[in-house]
Write a protein that binds this DNA or RNA. Structure first.
Lengths: 225, 225
DNA sequence: ATATTATTAGAGTATATACTCTAGGTAGTC
DNA sequence: GACTACCTAGAGTATATACTCTAATAATAT
């Protein structure tokens, strides 16, 4: 593997593990057992590394959220979208952690991320539309769908931060992809009141599969003082 | 005003304005035109400053979210809760920006924040309960209320980050409390399908008052490619 | 074989950051 | 007026961070 690619890969790994803020270019070089000079031969600065990682992230999610326009959408499609988005979030989890700082440090990233958000929101809205077309949820007014899609996006992008900060565990490191996928449960909560009778039971059953396991459940449900 | 209090106040101001990551103890001292030594006479380290600010934040929100148990809840109460929470979020907006890093750097803060989250979630759940008792929304099963409350919390805590990152503006600094309060619109979206006929129109009208102004609306609604 | 280009090592640097240390000033009290 | 507790200035420091520079080595083309 090329040194350049190794730098990207290791950076992502270290960023995810320790947070971008705690990972210096010297750390990355040391981790790869190469010299800082070598690293800076391949990348002009740390921002460039981060930007390239963002481009990969973007590509991955865009690939996942490609919605077929020649047929109806199925429950399996929906499951795939949800699972995939959380997969992507997991693989690039460092990104949302320091999002504001990163966007403030790099205008390219700011603009790129803004467009990316727009595409994701549009995709979510399109999914809701197609769920209605497929008779899985009742049709909704345009405005409501827009607001709901935005809420879904907010829950998805904030779910990991919630787990890391509100989790019973001492450190935020012990989080797994499994925990993260319980976010699907939260997202499916949105659909409940809009489900058609034909699909109601099936979606509720699907949702049950993602029900958080006991530790968190207890945490969430017994928090009532 | 005591130097100690001035340090807390200015720190909060600078953190909110530039982000905790970009504000050093030397900056704070320079801003107050006092010496670094003076600052460190009053606080052992930066973490201590942040922790004390958190305690104030906590106190403020706890005060806002004190729910009366001797009477029914009204729409005005609900409006007050929502407005207040966004006020608090605004006044201490630096906090959620670097939340994960802050919690990783200070175990006291981690534990304090965890308990704080639990209290907030419990309060939201209690509000939903009391909205049902007051006949504003239909009663819901315990489990659904818990999941919905969590979603509300996720939307509230992530709404500002969304505005700052996805906003059309170049920098994230131009955000105002007015923009932030449009988050109320998003939260009220949750209630729509559960509203009782008696209150439906009134809540929808209330929601309309928080409808995002054109720039964002356009941004949100035309994002569909 | 030689010239050229791509890659790498490693020492080094300017700046920043959190924090320390010493010396001295102020305000109130007996 | 001296004692004490509190407060402040300001120079200084150890460490870290992002990044540079030069020289050497490997790969490739001619």
């Amino acid at each position: 593997m090329k040194t350049r690619d190794k730098i990207l890969l290791s950076s992502l790994e270290l960023f995810n593990e320790h947070g971008e803020r705690n990972v210096t270019t010297n750390h990355i070089a040391a981790y790869l057992v190469i010299s800082p000079g070598n690293l800076y031969y391949h990348f002009r600065n740390k921002s460039d590394i981060i930007y390239e990682i963002f481009l990969e992230y973007e590509k991955l999610v865009d690939y996942y959220l490609d919605i077929p326009e020649d047929r109806h959408i199925t429950l399996d499609d929906m499951t795939f979208y949800l699972e995939s988005v959380f997969d992507g979030l997991w693989s690039y989890r460092f990104f949302h952690r320091d999002l504001e700082y990163l966007l403030d440090s790099d205008p390219r990233l700011r603009q790129g991320y803004r467009k990316f958000t727009n595409r994701c929101l549009a995709a979510i809205r399109r999914i809701f539309e197609k769920l209605a077309e497929a008779g899985i949820i009742e049709p909704q007014p345009e405005e409501l769908r827009a607001a709901m899609s935005l809420n879904v996006w907010l829950v998805i992008t904030n779910w990991m931060a919630f787990l890391k900060t509100a989790h019973a565990a001492k450190d935020s490191a012990s989080l797994t992809l499994i925990d993260l996928k319980q976010g699907v449960y939260q997202v499916l909560t949105f659909e409940i009141p809009y489900l058609t009778p034909a699909y109601r039971e099936r979606v509720l059953a699907l949702r049950e599969k993602y029900r958080p396991t006991l530790p968190e459940r207890e945490f969430i449900e017994t928090a009532c003082k």
